[in-house]
């Protein structure tokens, strides 16, 4: 084990896999000379050269579309899209390209494409730099969408993504890049389809995504003072969704809160709530509760953003209310 930040752990995964597999090529805006706006690709241009680390023009759809071609041609492209919000510009190449060609071409091509992007609010970055849009790619059959919540998973999920033959969207969180944690040295793989129980508990389950995992752990500590024993599960992979792990917890506790930063309506928490309800309805003691951002665009002002974004307090109150209302 070694202590790394989330950004360093991602860098470690890229470096390790690039040494192992010459087919890996990175491309994105500001990832070369500058080392990435969030320093994730720092030092990689110097180590691997300009054929494997490409600074690209500001052409999101073009970069992802080119990467789709590279993947079909036998390379393993890794695209950095600086903000999830900018991924909107590349949705054509994902939804009509990466998600389609391996299927439509009858399996003649594989799609070992990794798209790294980062989302989330809390940095007062305003409505075009704060969104959580992971549901958009998670909606696409054949596309993996994974969200690491800590440095070890950042390394492990990215490493697994770099060995997958299917497209993977890795959604990082801007507020997590500087957080530190213990990370296994050398090869470290985290499966792309497994949720993880990060805190066992008996009275209620909080199923959380990305940065909300940390907030859920804080809430769980506060609730422990009220003699409420809360289980926290890190979803890690939105698709495929590890329904078995989530439903097993729901059956044990009978009370479930699903927490993510994305807007609630038609968001990832809706899908998770539906899947858990379908699988564990008989054992649920109350309807599954969803926690997410208020249904407005993210405001820039530090005075306004906290009203939109859920945090540990929101989660604590949600669990308290759920326990009160449950049969």
């Amino acid at each position: 084990m070694t202590r790394l930040t989330y950004a360093q752990a991602l860098n470690d995964a890229l470096r390790g896999e690039m040494l192992r597999d010459e087919r890996i090529v990175l491309l994105g805006e500001d990832i070369g000379v500058y080392g990435g706006v969030f320093s994730v690709t720092s030092g990689l241009l110097e180590q691997f050269g300009p054929d494997r680390v490409l600074d690209t023009p500001i052409s999101e759809n073009g970069i992802v579309g080119a990467a789709v071609g590279m993947a079909m041609s036998g390379l393993r492209p890794v695209v950095e899209i600086m903000y999830t919000d900018f991924l909107c510009l590349a949705l054509d190449s994902i939804a009509n390209g990466a998600a389609v060609f391996p299927f439509a071409y009858g399996g003649q091509v594989s799609m070992p494409l990794v798209i790294r992007t980062q989302g989330g609010a809390g940095a007062n970055a305003g409505p075009q730099h704060s969104k959580s849009l992971e549901a958009w790619t998670a909606h696409l059959p054949g596309v993996h969408t994974v969200l690491p919540s800590n440095p070890a998973d950042a390394k492990g999920l990215l490493t697994s993504a770099l060995r997958s033959s299917e497209p993977v969207v890795l959604v990082e969180h801007k507020l997590l890049y500087g957080t530190e944690g213990e990370v296994p040295e050398g090869e470290h793989l985290v499966p792309l389809e497994r949720a993880q129980v990060v805190r066992p508990g008996r009275d209620a389950t909080v199923i959380a995504l990305s940065r909300m995992v940390g907030e859920a752990l804080v809430a769980a500590e506060q609730l422990a003072e009220q003699q409420l024993d809360v289980e926290v599960i890190d979803v890690r992979s939105l698709r495929p969704l590890d329904v078995a792990t989530l439903a097993a917890s729901a059956r044990r506790t009978g009370r479930v809160v699903v927490a993510g930063e994305a807007w609630v309506r038609y968001g990832p928490t809706a899908e998770i709530a539906a899947a858990v309800t379908e699988a564990a309805f008989a054992e649920l003691r109350a309807p599954v509760v969803r926690v997410g951002s208020l249904g407005v665009p993210y405001p820039a002002s530090p005075a306004l953003e906290p009203t939109v974004l859920p945090d540990a307090d929101t989660l604590r109150r949600a669990v308290e209310d759920l326990v009160k209302s449950a049969r």
Partner: peptide, 12 residues
């Protein structure tokens, strides 16, 4: 699309 795929093939 054919233009974008060609960039990728060309790079490879």
């Amino acid at each position: 699309h054919s233009l974008l795929l060609a960039v990728g093939h060309g790079l490879a």
